[in-house]
Design a protein around this nucleic acid. Structure first.
Lengths: 208, 208
DNA sequence: GTCTATACCGAGATAGAC
DNA sequence: GTCTATCTCGGTATAGAC
């Protein structure tokens, strides 16, 4: 019951979280590269710089570590995806900014790409994970843009939800095809020309 | 050097291909369900109804079996994806038929969905496989539709390649989100409303 | 050409020292 | 709480009988 007031050690809780963070950092590298089944706990231990037993003292088992990792990253990163996005009233400005934010934060970031690939890869084994991703990312974006379309009838969009899917779906499939499926080495297509064509399509009725 | 004219055995080549076909059928079930790293050769042998050694006599190793399987399915299935599609001159008919063909053959077929998921999942480990898929499926569709757009300037499409990506990308992402990422349990969206909205967008300039 | 049996290694998970 | 050492099982791949 002695109080170690002069101890230079950080508090137990701090140490706990620091270790967990360290483990998750290493786990991310390996899971993102090798997938769930391809990842060995030995490699995670090496990559994180801890022993295997330390991992098992912080997480129940391999599945628990994996779920904790993906949930953490999905929520942390995607809840802030469009937080910096200003809701311009001008449609062209808004659409352009949404697309540029998405390309900057997702297509340009290896970790985002790896997470997307991993969630798709494990969607059959871990359906809850896929649902969390869909809710955090897709639903969020679709609802926001759908509401915007509803508030701007001059765009002449009859089905705002479907239109929002088309907009974000074009961005997602661009990333999937060009970056993940190596499309940029086979069918070059710049993100700028995609965005310009999207603007052209969605604003066709206002230009006339 | 005797000719076994009365033999009731099938020819060696026949037997060879039959066994290979049998192995590939079993391998497909397991690889599609468990992914590359999650698949064991024992399970493939059980599923295919042969011994493990038989597999190794027909294919070099696990990697060779996997590559042979995916190449075979990708080429066989996707080269015939749009072969039945009639090239209607009317834009609405054409777009509608392309979308319906895609949904019928891809979204409605568990094997197509599994192949797409698998190719994405293994795109880092097997980039050549991803490139083959991109060439056989994406490039094929984009080129065909891009040429159609170029031949129909009345649609007012300035960038035919980007527009073709938007069209097919919306279909692909619909399948990825709704079917693979379990979106249909979270954000219901019918394929009909998607197609109608696509038509609305792409034909906006001809309606006026 | 196909089977059964086996070699050998690396996987996930745990015991026990400190 | 963290480490080293170890258990046990299932993995890929092969040897040898028929």
């Amino acid at each position: 019951m002695t109080l170690a007031v002069n101890s230079i050690e950080t508090s137990p809780i701090q140490v706990h979280n620091q270790k967990q963070e360290q483990i998750l950092q290493g786990a991310m590298q390996v899971f993102f590269r090798d997938g769930y089944a391809g990842t060995s706990m030995d490699r995670v231990a090496i990559e994180a710089g801890v022993s295997k037993q330390t991992i098992y003292s912080h997480f129940q088992d391999k599945e628990g570590l994996f779920k904790a990792l993906v949930e953490r990253i999905t929520i942390a990163r995607y809840n802030t995806l469009f937080e910096s996005a200003q809701l311009y009233d001008d449609p062209e400005l808004l659409l352009r900014q949404l697309a540029e934010t998405y390309f900057l934060k997702v297509a340009g970031d290896r970790d985002y790409l790896s997470l997307l690939r991993l969630v798709i890869a494990e969607s059959a084994r871990f359906p809850e994970m896929a649902k969390l991703y869909t809710q955090s990312v897709i639903q969020h974006g679709r609802q926001m843009l759908g509401q915007y379309f509803d508030a701007h009838p001059e765009l002449g969009i009859s089905d705002s939800k479907a239109a929002a899917h088309i907009f974000f779906g074009s961005l997602v499939s661009f990333v999937v095809v060009q970056e993940i499926l190596h499309g940029k080495e086979i069918i070059p297509l710049s993100s700028e020309s995609l965005v310009n064509s999207l603007i052209e399509l969605f604003l066709a009725r206002t230009d006339n």
